[in-house]
Design a protein around this nucleic acid. Structure first.
Length: 479
RNA sequence: CGGGGCGUAGCGCAGUCUGGUUUAGCGCACCUGCUUUGGGAGCAGGGGGUCGAAGGUUCAAAUCCUUUCGCCCCGACCA
């Protein structure tokens, strides 16, 4: 049992911060609300980046880079957009030792500059669709920062597409939501509910926002990815117009979609335990660590270490370059070395001591369950990937079972309040209210509409307004 | 931005109320040596802080006063 981590049960927030600290994922920066992503944390982000990026490329998108600074006037061109974002914008007023004529906003998101550029690039229906993504940082001056979940500056990816027709843009919006869902479930082992955002939770300027919502291990909800159907709002504001096949002028239909370093927070809060970080194997930058153990220094150097390196090389041929490390911190005792890797969430520890040596084997210990298994040397190539995949699946199944076990249905507001107070978690209920009702529910309970799940078109009597024809909604307390 | 808590060594804290008795102390971590070594070792020796910052009161301030910065928790705002 780790002794430098506050147990989850004792103080969840502190546990979360402790895990980040002992796993060396991030640290506080000198500027309030900003964080330094340390090498191990950044390696996780790179893993997310490369795997998501591949999926974007597979769906026809290309990467580009748009500037950090946006003319302040751009934000104002879309009414809802400026209202939504101006409170959290950082503004540059001086540069080159002089006050600027027009201040620049540090991008909180890039719909506006990208809209401006698209209007110059798009003339004809033949120029569409435009399918561009960018990996970058954005800044939103948050009142209450939390490492990874809500920092003033964060890293993300924002896809921006423009299409000739409404249908195509809607298809794109849903397609990317699906890319997120599959990535989160397959790589992050993060079960998510996909759905539509309610009116009150919609992206400022969007006609419709779709979301991936996940349940953290304290039963609170976290929005881990969003995809927006922007209609023609931005194309009208920035004049992304084109001549269609019939020769008539038309405004493009645009979408945007994003996910961020918040995903790292989601992974921590979904899988980790009181011993520290737990990483799903497909996400983990390092999937296994070989730990030679002996009291005899010569055996370590002459037999165990070379063997460990040989096995690591063989494993890397199967698992990928730099995915296996050999621990040679021989100045530490085995327990210390175990804990070091345990806290950093490396999925599999492969011990090679004299006992294993004599049997031509390794002792594998799974990070999530501490389950032990002996693997003969000549079976590592098949056994290790097998165990990793078992662990990957187990993490997903466990998280899914947790979510299912903490999802309830409420038929009335009284029942809703009771469930929320006594059980927490996700509460499904038919809802027919609007922004005003959402707000009232939030004020009374602090719970919000997380989404209106897709693939459920059932209608029912609204738990709050008692009106018929309510759509199924998921409510929860959220981060 | 409102309410609450807190800034003393890398981390966690004691000392602050009742200024001087501390050349500011303890645990963990760190360094050196020896013994150890399969889920966080033991002994011995050692290094490190001027008490968040600025100003003030006083013969004397970590301790009192003022201002300021930052962090954490709870709310309103959000990926």
């Amino acid at each position: 049992m780790a002794r430098n981590i506050t147990p989850k049960e004792e103080d969840y927030s502190q546990w979360y911060l402790d895990v980040i600290k002992v796993a060396e994922l991030a640290d506080y920066a000198p500027v309030r609300g900003c964080m330094v992503i340390r090498p191990w944390g950044y390696a996780i982000w790179e893993s997310i980046q490369s795997q998501l990026d591949a999926r974007f490329k597979e769906t026809g998108h290309v990467n580009a880079y748009f500037p950090l600074l946006i003319p302040a006037s751009f934000l104002e061109k879309e009414a809802e957009h400026v209202e939504g974002f101006s409170p959290e914008c950082a503004v540059v007023t001086h540069a080159g030792g002089e006050e600027l004529e027009e201040p620049f906003v540090i991008r909180p998101t890039s719909e506006t500059v990208i809209g401006y550029m698209y209007s110059r690039w798009v003339q004809s229906w033949r120029d569409l669709p435009v399918l561009i993504n960018q990996w970058c940082n954005v800044m939103r001056w948050e009142k209450r920062p939390r490492l990874f979940l809500r920092t003033s500056e964060f890293l993300w990816q924002e896809g921006h597409t423009a299409h000739a027709t409404k249908e195509e843009a809607i298809d794109e919006t849903l397609k990317m939501l699906e890319v997120y869902r599959s990535f989160m479930e397959e790589v992050l082992a993060l079960p998510v509910v996909t759905g539509e955002k309610s009116e009150g939770e919609r992206f400022p300027g969007a006609l419709n926002t779709y979301t991936c919502e996940a349940m953290m291990s304290d039963k609170r909800a976290l929005q881990v990815g969003t995809s927006h159907f922007l209609g023609q709002n931005f194309s009208k504001a920035f004049d992304i117009s084109f001549q269609n096949r019939d020769g008539n002028m038309d405004y493009a239909w645009t979408t945007s979609w994003g996910t961020s370093t918040r995903l790292i927070g989601a992974v921590i809060m979904t899988h980790s335990d009181d011993d520290g970080l737990v990483l799903p194997p497909r996400l983990a930058p390092v999937k296994a660590v070989l730990v030679p153990i002996s009291t005899d220094e010569r055996k370590l150097e002459d037999m165990l270490l070379p063997k460990a390196r040989e096995l690591a090389n063989r494993l890397e041929a199967v698992l990928g370059p730099r995915s296996v490390i050999v621990d040679s911190q021989f100045h530490l005792r085995p327990g210390d070395r175990f804990f070091y890797h345990l806290q950093r969430g490396i999925p599999l520890r492969l011990e090679l001591g004299e006992r294993e040596w004599d049997r031509c084997a390794l002792r594998a210990v799974r990070r999530d369950t501490a389950q032990k298994e002996e693997i003969p040397w000549d079976a590592v190539d098949s056994a290790v990937p097998r165990i990793l995949e078992e662990m990957q699946r187990a993490l997903y199944e466990r998280a899914l079972a947790f979510r299912e076990a903490n999802t309830y249905h409420a038929g009335s507001f009284d029942e809703f309040k009771e469930l929320l107070e006594e059980k927490g978690g996700f509460i499904k209920a038919y809802f027919a209210g609007g922004v005003a009702e959402e707000k009232a529910i939030k004020e009374a309970t602090t719970a919000t509409v997380r989404c209106l799940p897709l693939n459920d078109n059932s209608k029912g009597r609204c738990f709050y307004t008692k009106k018929d024809g309510g759509r199924l909604a998921i409510f929860a307390k959220a981060y």
